[in-house]
């Protein structure tokens, strides 16, 4: 494992990024079933507002999740399922803070639909290859399969974006995708990993508030799940609801006291995990850490900030060895840190 990872570091160090992702996708063709849970939506549009969009079936009775766009607010929606059947769709509820809307297909009581189970939605790591399924540009008509586009989750961020001249109101955290997924009609489409596991709801065509660049993003389905459940029950989600699970975090004091490692304090929201000092004679010193090292990996997890490093290190128990990769003098080094026992004198 150790050798294997080293080789890959060397390999990707000398090459552009994208070829590295290819084999991960190459072993799989897109899961066929995913096509059956994506519906094409048609409604009212005007000018740059498209008259078509995409939705995802989230219940066997025909509930469809999509974005809370003009298509939903103007009504008169027709949904075309993957097998080409056409249904009138009615809006059940909207959740503006997450830019989500729930529709219900007008069906015969016996109709059953393939659907995604939001509970099975996965939260893949940044860097995971993904597939985006949508009715973009209305390329597929009737029973024709929707378009599928490949990409990689590039970042997990909160959006600072505009739609036209208006500030885009989405409050939730989103994934940015390194491919052009948010095209005309793609909003409300499905983002999956390469196994077809549901990941996110493709967002609208919006631009970054400062740079003006088009943003390709998707709202995590895991984040949407409580809102969808509330909407299915006919309730509104309470505005204060976004529940953040408190993850154990190693305190800065613990890090210095126990490990002998001090990181540059978090002066910014995402201060990189730079080592400020190493206490001589501690586990950190034995492992070979030096002032100025940048922690880039703990185990296999990518470290993007100082707090990230403390969160990952908290997962190790005393006596375990943590493989930590640092960047030093433009080179990557893997150091092995023996996690010391909790100090009794610390606090």
């Amino acid at each position: 494992m150790k050798i294997c990872r080293r080789r890959m570091l060397q390999l990707t160090g000398s090459l552009p990024f994208w070829p590295a992702v290819v084999p991960a996708l190459a072993s799989q063709t897109p899961p066929k079933d995913t096509q059956t849970v994506v519906v094409k939506l048609f409604g009212a549009g005007l000018g740059s507002l498209d008259s078509y969009g995409t939705g995802v079936l989230v219940s066997a009775e025909g509930h469809v999740l999509t974005v809370a766009s003009h298509l939903v607010s103007t009504g008169f929606l027709t949904a075309v399922t993957a097998d080409g059947r056409r249904f009138t769709a009615e809006t059940v509820a909207t959740e503006p803070s997450m830019d989500a809307a729930l529709l219900k297909l007008k069906t015969e009581p016996a109709d059953q639909f393939p659907c995604i189970d939001l509970k099975t939605a996965v939260e893949p790591a940044v860097g995971t290859p993904v597939l985006a399924w949508s009715n973009m540009f209305r390329v597929a008509a009737g029973n024709e399969p929707v378009s599928v586009v490949h990409g990689v989750i590039a970042a997990s961020v909160s959006l600072d974006a505009v739609q036209g001249k208006w500030k885009f109101p989405l409050k939730s955290h989103v994934w940015l995708i390194d491919a052009i997924t948010n095209n005309s009609g793609a909003a409300g489409g499905l983002l999956t990993d390469s196994d077809g596991q549901p990941v996110g709801l493709i967002g609208r065509e919006i631009r970054h508030a400062t740079s003006g660049t088009w943003v390709n993003y998707a709202v995590p389905l895991k984040t949407l799940q409580p809102a969808v459940e509330a909407m299915l029950k006919g309730q509104r989600l309470t505005p204060a609801a976004p529940t953040t699970v408190a993850e154990p975090l190693l305190s800065a004091r613990d890090l210095t006291g126990r490990f002998g490692l001090t990181l540059i304090p978090a002066v910014l929201e995402r201060t990189p995990a730079w080592i400020d000092s190493v206490v001589p004679g501690t586990a950190a010193a034995q492992a070979g850490f030096r002032r100025g090292d940048l922690i880039v990996l703990v185990g296999d997890a990518v470290i993007t900030s100082e707090s990230d490093a403390r969160r990952r290190l908290a997962e190790y128990r005393a006596g375990q060895k943590a493989a930590i990769t640092v960047s030093r003098d433009e080179q990557l080094l893997e150091l092995s840190l023996l996690v010391p026992a909790a100090t009794t004198t610390g606090r």
Binding site: L9, V126, L297
Partner: peptide, 15 residues
């Protein structure tokens, strides 16, 4: 350092 971070983001997919 910045570019190392970007580079490494891709690595988690590769592991």
């Amino acid at each position: 350092y910045q570019s190392s971070i970007v580079l490494l983001m891709y690595l988690s997919a590769l592991s």
